[in-house]
């Protein structure tokens, strides 16, 4: 068991961000967090990333978390390769960064400035930057929401593929229920900072958008979110 949260809360003055969260995430487990805006999804992610020092309760986090944000957040003054290699320790960081860029399909664009890349390509650089560190927990904060529909589908496929090869635990924050069902093994639902629903998906659930079992689960989750499908 890598990650353990017991009674984790976070609040600012009058606003409650997270309230008494109990959660375990196993090695290599893929977890989606869904919920309406302001439900605490991103607060939970930031706590797990170690970016929030104001949380209370017990949190045994990952040893090496890596984050992909909603925007790629690349350093615009560094090439794609340098962005991936940034702060990378160990042997041959640039070679490892180059291999990871190739893995996300950006072979040949190593020297491009972030501005010269498309939105989808930039997000792939951000994915490479996270994965090259061999994280034990990969945190994705609505990483596809700024992409156009076609780019989003291929980026989702890329994430599924990369997880198969590297097998980090994965926490995907999303407002897209379908995306959660396609990419993860377990769906958490947050409302007003509380964990209100925790659903493990059957291992044999077909990960196809038009599969009736998946469509039925999607409808159920949407109802729980208060949306009539």
């Amino acid at each position: 068991m890598t990650i353990v949260l017991r009674g984790v809360s976070r609040s600012w003055e009058e606003i409650v961000g997270l309230s008494d969260i109990d959660l375990d995430i196993a090695d290599g487990e893929r977890v989606a967090v869904i919920g309406r805006s302001g439900s605490g999804k991103t607060t939970l992610l930031r706590a797990l990333a170690g970016l929030d020092t104001g949380i209370t309760g017990e949190l045994r986090g990952a040893a090496a978390p890596a984050v992909v944000f909603q925007d790629p957040r690349l350093f615009p003054w560094r090439s794609a390769l340098d962005n991936v290699a940034l702060g990378l320790r160990g042997t041959d960081p640039r070679d490892r960064a180059r291999a990871m860029l190739a893995e996300v399909g950006l072979h040949g664009r190593e020297d491009a400035w972030p501005r010269q890349l498309s939105g989808g390509q930039r997000q792939r650089v951000a994915l490479a930057r996270a994965l090259v560190r061999e994280p034990d927990l990969l945190l994705l904060d609505e990483p596809f929401s700024a992409l156009d529909a076609l780019t989003r589908v291929s980026a989702q496929a890329l994430v599924a593929d990369l997880w198969e090869r590297h097998r980090p635990a994965l926490l995907l924050v999303t407002h897209d229920v379908e995306e959660a069902l396609l990419l993860t093994d377990r769906v958490l639902l947050l409302a007003d900072g509380r964990l209100v629903h925790d659903e493990r998906l059957p291992a044999d659930l077909p990960r196809r958008r038009d599969d009736p079992a998946l469509v039925a689960r999607r409808a159920d989750l949407l109802r729980r979110l208060g949306v009539e499908p």
Partner: peptide
């Protein structure tokens, strides 16, 4: 937001100065 990236990448003070602060 880029400072936050530097945090998650666990950059040292020197790396942060060289790759983020000075170029920015």
């Amino acid at each position: 937001e880029l400072s936050e990236v530097a945090d998650t990448l666990r950059l040292t003070r020197w790396e942060r100065l060289r790759h983020l602060v000075l170029p920015a």
